[in-house]
């Protein structure tokens, strides 16, 4: 594992893998869209609106998964001060915020026809909105200090504190009365989704995972190059000063 944690090696690996990942992501989105929009039946209660599930649920999963990764990256940044962990954390929060936004917006568009409202302040929806603000807060803190390292450390602490929100989101539908329904997939007695609707959902979930991975690697590679650019400019600036002095 430590071999890939070397920034230079990571850079070469990402450059080689990314074109393949992009192709795979596009293909799985095509397959997912075909299954979700064309090759799956309407639901017995919800009719065609069930198709919103195929984007809403994977987006919500990715929003939570990205936050878990953000927590892990922040922990290893604080403990081992590893540069790649910092870069991963910095790359993750905009991606996670995007997925959270998608989950909130599609959930709202699903709630209006089925529940009769775009939004309610129940425990699930409220804790998910908090997740969005945690991502925004992480992005803001990274830029809030002139000293980059102070920004990174405070952002990492915020990300770790925000980890307590993950179990709250997950179990809110079991612990409290909510308008949002309980989980359909991760149930003790197996998923309560018919296979004809489970397959489109899982295919979309694969596509969303691949998108997360692709976007993450692309952003990490860019951030590494930006760090190199800063270092080169600094070196050149110092060389110029030495010439003049």
């Amino acid at each position: 594992m430590h071999r890939f944690a070397n920034p230079g090696r990571f850079q070469r690996l990402a450059t080689r893998v990314l074109p393949w990942l992009k192709g795979l992501t596009a293909l799985s989105f095509l397959a997912g869209l075909y299954l979700a929009l064309l090759a799956s039946p309407p639901d017995y209660q919800q009719g065609e609106t069930v198709r919103i599930m195929y984007v809403h649920v994977p987006a919500a999963w990715m929003a939570l998964f990205a936050y878990l990764l953000l927590g892990l990256a922040s922990a290893s940044s604080l403990i081992w001060r590893h540069p790649l962990a910092d870069i991963a954390a910095q790359a993750l929060s905009p991606i996670g915020a995007a997925f959270t936004l998608v989950a909130l917006a599609t959930g709202s568009l699903w709630g209006k026809p089925m529940w009769g409202t775009y939004w309610v302040w129940d425990a699930r929806l409220t804790s998910f909105l908090l997740l969005f603000f945690l991502y925004l807060g992480h992005m803001a803190l990274l830029d809030a200090f002139d000293d980059r390292n102070r920004g990174r450390r405070s952002a990492a602490v915020l990300a770790l504190v925000g980890l307590v929100n993950l179990p709250i989101i997950k179990f809110s539908v079991d612990w409290w009365n909510t308008l949002h329904q309980p989980a359909s997939i991760t149930r003790m007695d197996g998923p309560s989704i018919d296979p004809s609707m489970l397959w489109p959902l899982l295919t979309m979930a694969v596509a969303f995972h691949l998108f997360l991975l692709t976007a993450l690697l692309e952003r990490m590679r860019t951030l590494l190059m930006e760090a190199r650019l800063r270092a080169q400019r600094q070196a050149r600036f110092e060389a110029m000063q030495a010439e003049q002095g």
């Binding site: 639901d43 989704i193 609707m197």
Partner: peptide, 11 residues
């Protein structure tokens, strides 16, 4: 407000 359950089945 209607509350829907976690069961998904084709019509």
């Amino acid at each position: 407000l209607a509350k829907h359950d976690e069961n998904y089945l084709p019509a």
